[in-house]
Amino acid sequence: MSFKTEPTGYEKTALSDLQGAWVNLRNAVVDEFGFPNSDKLLFQIDEAMSWESVRNLNHMKSTLLLIRNITSQTESPEEVIFWVNEVKESLDGTFKAIASGKAK
């Protein structure tokens, strides 16, 4: 009986970039928590990072649009706005990678 071994190297992909951007956005909201609608943002970020959204990137895209609307209508900290934009760029990159066959 053979056991599957853990790979020693990992390939950086569009999906790993996307995951990292979401984690950084969530951390920025937690670090700055207390600004208007920070609780709503945290809820929506957790929704976007949920298994349902990861399996359906169009759902993630819709949730990101809602997050962008909340941050644009609120006095969100610059760090939060920066990471919202990074998530948007990473999600766009993921869709491009999928379209080109580089991600599934």
Rank of each mutant, 00 (worst) to 15 (best):
L41F: 04
L41S: 01
L41D: 02
L41N: 00
L42Q: 05
L42I: 02
L42M: 08
F43M: 01
Q44P: 02
Q44F: 05
I45H: 06
D46N: 03
D46L: 10
E47F: 06
E47S: 00
E47K: 00
A48V: 03
M49S: 04
M49Q: 03
M49W: 02
M49R: 01
S50A: 06
S50F: 06
W51D: 06
W51K: 01
E52P: 04
E52Y: 11
S53G: 05
S53I: 04
S53H: 05
V54W: 11
V54K: 09
V54H: 04
V54D: 08
R55N: 14
R55F: 10
R55K: 10
R55T: 07
N56P: 05
N56A: 03
N56I: 00
L57S: 04
N58T: 02
N58Q: 08
N58K: 08
N58D: 10
H59K: 10
H59P: 07
H59T: 08
M60D: 01
M60N: 09
M60F: 08
K61A: 01
K61F: 09
K61N: 09
S62R: 15
S62Y: 10
S62K: 12
S62L: 14
S62H: 09
S62F: 11
T63N: 12
L64R: 13
L64F: 12
L65W: 14
L65N: 13
L65G: 13
L65Y: 13
L66P: 07
I67R: 12
I67F: 14
R68V: 00
N69C: 08
N69R: 14
N69V: 09
I70E: 13
T71N: 14
T71S: 11
T71L: 09
T71Y: 15
T71W: 15
T71M: 06
S72I: 10
S72P: 06
Q73M: 08
Q73T: 09
Q73Y: 14
Q73E: 13
Q73G: 15
T74Q: 15
T74N: 15
T74P: 15
T74E: 15
E75G: 12
E75R: 10
E75V: 11
S76N: 12
S76C: 06
S76A: 11
S76L: 04
P77R: 11
P77G: 11
P77T: 12
P77E: 08
P77I: 12
E78P: 05
E78A: 06
E79N: 15
E79I: 06
E79T: 15
E79W: 00
E79R: 09
E79L: 09
